[in-house]
């Protein structure tokens, strides 16, 4: 028996009815899979997660996967039509307006229900930016299976999960300073070329 899908709109409506004051946004997925995700606000995330797990209709008791996504700062250019006076005549001129969309990090959770045999419901948490505002609430207190995977996201993407019981690096060593899965990560190129035996410097 394959898992039944449940629509994101349905889940969103259920959340909004159960958790007053929360902000849930649906992020459309344009691909044929059409697995839309729900962007949760930090303040209510734990409460929403607990509702998703315990609600008799939803019973999303199994968090199968946690992963990270890195969005760099992007420049969006759009053409704007404005009216300008050219040689004393008012004409319509196209101008290119460039805006910078700040980058962010995302933690994505895939939820299923063992009991109801439905899923996945995809839940998403966003950080403020990629540098100093990288905190999101941890969902490990709700789904214990998220513990190691949140540690992995912390290790490789640098998202800090508040409320995680044991947030340490899991793959890289503790002294390591970088986050290798970030898009702007540059691996040390210096170990690719030999040291010169006499001078101890890099050749080439």
């Amino acid at each position: 028996m394959t898992a039944q899908t449940i629509s994101a709109e349905q889940v969103k409506a259920a959340i909004e009815a159960a958790v007053p004051g929360c902000r849930v946004e649906i992020l459309q997925n344009g691909s044929p899979s059409a697995q839309h995700s729900l962007v949760l606000d930090h303040k209510h995330a734990t409460e929403i997660a607990r509702f998703l797990r315990d609600d008799v209709e939803l019973r999303l008791d199994y968090c199968s996967n946690v992963t990270g996504v890195d969005w760099l700062d992007t420049e969006v250019s759009e053409k704007v039509k404005t009216k300008k006076l050219v040689d004393g005549v008012e004409t319509e001129v196209e101008e290119v307006k460039k805006t910078t969309v700040p980058g962010r990090l995302e933690a994505v959770y895939h939820l299923f229900s063992m009991e109801k045999k439905h899923g996945p419901v995809i839940v998403l948490l966003r950080t403020g930016n990629r540098t100093d505002d990288v905190r999101v609430p941890s969902l490990t207190p709700v789904w214990r299976s998220a513990e190691f995977q949140e540690r992995e996201v912390f290790d490789l993407y640098g998202i800090v999960f508040e409320g995680h019981p044991d947030l340490r690096r899991i793959l890289m060593w503790d002294e390591f300073a970088d986050h290798p899965m970030r898009k702007d990560y540059v691996p040390p190129a210096d170990d690719d070329e030999p040291l010169h035996a006499a001078t101890g410097e890099r050749e080439r």
Binding site: E175, P188, P194, G200
Partner: peptide, 20 residues
């Protein structure tokens, strides 16, 4: 040793003799 960006040193020059 474990360094901040990788292993330190990146190789042991006494041992490593790559073709040049």
């Amino acid at each position: 040793d474990y360094g901040e960006h990788g292993l330190e040193p990146t190789e042991n020059a006494e041992v490593w003799n790559p073709l040049k």
